[in-house]
Design a protein around this nucleic acid. Structure first.
Lengths: 186, 186
DNA sequence: CCCCCATGTAAGCAGTCGCTTACATCCGAC
DNA sequence: GTCGGATGTAAGCGACTGCTTACATGGGGG
């Protein structure tokens, strides 16, 4: 009646369950027992395969970040990330921002944001303008994306949470272009 | 050697300590013992005067929100709130967003954001434009403010975290005006 | 003066947490 | 077949949590 023993499958089930729960509840409100139950696995195995709750969390973030940034040219990055954030039924387990936003105090989470979002998103965005404060402007655009995600998924702020993705994307890209478009002022 | 007994002062000390710690660490990572210690008060008094940790948290949010929104005409609200968020040495205990951002999963926190930020900030912002999707545009501006706060204070994202407040405010208000200024399109 | 209640204190309860340990069970190598 | 390591399980440890209870203490009103 029980499935055959398969360490790889058990590891994967734990990672999937952890990704889902960390994204939904954040680090603190997710217990190792919750993760093991959702994975249908004994909780001692979590420690056998990942060592600690912290290490599992770090693995979740690393895996998600790697997947998200795989392929997206700089010119379309803003729109890609924005639309991903605006999906009608957000699959929280797919976007590292969700886990990060709900675990923002956690060292691993803050580090991932600074490094991954900083060096990837922001650099790509900064390449779109030649203003001397390009990186600051890129940070502001990134802040907007993050803020939209917070209001939509964490706080459920209406009407933003229920708004049409394309409408939102149109408004944001138009205003953001004021920051990112080619400028020749010093 | 001990200060005279004063219930009001004890209540106030607990509220101050809770405001500071909730703003710095969020709800989950702040213990009632931490609060009582910082207030220099026995932890049983926290329950005598506030009933529960939840109720104390709600009191903190209510007090902060009341103070923040006291006096700020709609025309200057964006700039006021933005500059407040951008203060060089942010006094976390002064801005309800800090406690809220670090406790975003908490029912009281999410409710305060939806109601207080929704019905006050957003309505004031929405009054600045006559576009038919005024409220959505106002939400987007609010999202920007929230996102800037997250990147600066939660994640410490550079260069935004160290940027000059006036510079940031100038960039943001200019881009936000694209959303909020008078429009005559349908 | 003294009594009583507001105020403050010490101790601990029941539950949950991350994590460990000791043990069962399965399966491939030989 | 059988042996041994990989895999899975049950139980519980020690620490910490929010909260309660039983008790000490002090100061103002009769």
């Amino acid at each position: 009646m029980s499935r055959p023993r398969d360490a790889a499958a058990t590891r994967a089930a734990l990672l999937d369950a952890a990704t889902k729960l960390f994204g939904e509840r954040g680090f603190d409100r997710t217990t190792v027992r919750d993760i093991a139950n959702l994975a249908g696995v004994n909780q001692a195995l979590l420690f056998r395969y990942y060592g600690s709750k912290d290490a599992l969390f770090a693995t979740v973030l690393a895996t998600q970040s790697r997947e998200l940034l795989e392929d997206s040219p700089a010119e379309h990055l803003l729109r890609t990330v924005l639309l991903r954030m605006l999906e009608e039924k957000p699959r929280r387990e797919d976007h590292p921002l969700y886990a990060v936003l709900r675990s923002s105090h956690h060292d691993s989470a803050a580090e991932v944001v600074r490094r991954q979002l900083g060096e990837e998103y922001a650099r790509a965005l900064a390449s779109l303008t030649d203003a001397e404060d390009a990186e600051l402007r890129a940070d502001l655009v990134l802040a907007w994306i993050v803020g939209i995600g917070v209001l939509r998924t964490v706080f459920g702020k209406q009407p933003l949470a229920a708004a049409n993705s394309e409408d939102v994307a149109a408004l944001v890209t138009r205003a953001a272009s004021v920051l990112l478009e080619h400028t020749d002022v010093g």
